[in-house]
């Protein structure tokens, strides 16, 4: 591990320099395994936040107070420590340019992590496929990769929309509610354009978003989901 980056109060990026790194695909995850002195092991899966083209592998971890692995990664792990990883894993919740678009990315909270890998990959390969990111988050302070996402929004091909569900800054003119069908109708590509959609977030968020998109006439077969269970972090 070479660096910890505090992204928000709850999310920290862990920058890893891997020997024999296997190229991943944007959207994949790795398994992290911790081993105690007495042989006790704990494993969890974390989405990869970096693009395949990036110099280092980055995991962004939400610290769960009652978690077993995430507090260790955020509080105890220090630069220079080794971390045992397995992966990359998962072949379905991935985006590559050959899969086309237009692309709709829908993130709830830390569900933005694998979608950020897709956005970075999109930029790294100079893709001209249009992308919309809808990111639902409690407040502006909870926006992970805030500066980077705002920078990406300057790209002609990338449109970033936030909805701040709990707390909005003065003069906020963006969305200020939990996602619903009307909000998705506003942001999503029309179903007639056959968008490819990736939804990632807590289970309840993904259920609402995916059901609403299907209700709007989107092809369920073009909606890929990744759900974080309540203990999924």
């Amino acid at each position: 591990m070479i660096e910890l980056i505090e992204e928000t109060a709850e999310a920290t990026s862990i920058v890893l320099d891997l020997p024999d790194r296997q190229r991943h695909r944007a959207g994949q995850h790795v398994d992290v395994r911790l081993t105690a002195e007495d042989g006790y092991e704990a494993q969890r899966s974390y989405s990869i936040a970096s693009a395949p083209e990036d110099a280092y592998l980055v995991l962004t971890v939400e610290r769960l107070d009652d978690g077993e692995v995430s507090p260790y990664l955020v509080d105890t792990l220090r630069p220079g420590d080794e971390l045992e990883l397995r992966g990359p894993i998962g072949g379905y919740f991935v985006w590559e340019e050959v899969l086309g678009g237009p692309l709709l990315l829908v993130a709830g909270g830390s569900g933005v992590v694998p979608l950020r890998a897709m956005l970075r990959h999109h930029q790294a390969v100079g893709s001209t496929i249009p992308v919309r990111l809808l990111y639902s988050v409690k407040s502006l302070d909870d926006v992970i990769y805030r500066d980077e996402l705002m920078g990406m929004a300057a790209d002609d091909e990338i449109d970033v929309r936030l909805t701040l569900t709990r707390e909005q800054p003065e003069g906020w003119r963006g969305y200020a509610r939990r996602i619903d069908q009307e909000l998705l109708a506003d942001v999503a590509w029309p179903p007639s354009e056959g968008p490819l959609t990736y939804v990632c977030g807590p289970t309840s968020f993904v259920e609402v978003a995916a059901n609403a998109l299907v209700g709007l006439g989107h092809d369920p077969g073009r909606i890929r989901t990744e759900r974080f269970g309540p203990t999924g972090g």
Binding site: E68, F93, T203, A210, N211, V214, T225, R227, G229, G232
Partner: peptide, 30 residues
């Protein structure tokens, strides 16, 4: 680690942890 003392280790396969929640994993819409 944070080991649970209330779960019989003989019932937990390697690499697993016990949860009381019921997480959901699906590849697409329900």
């Amino acid at each position: 680690g944070r080991r649970r003392s209330d779960a019989d280790p003989a019932r937990i396969p390697p690499g697993q942890y016990v949860t009381d929640d019921f997480p959901v994993l699906s590849a697409g819409p329900t």
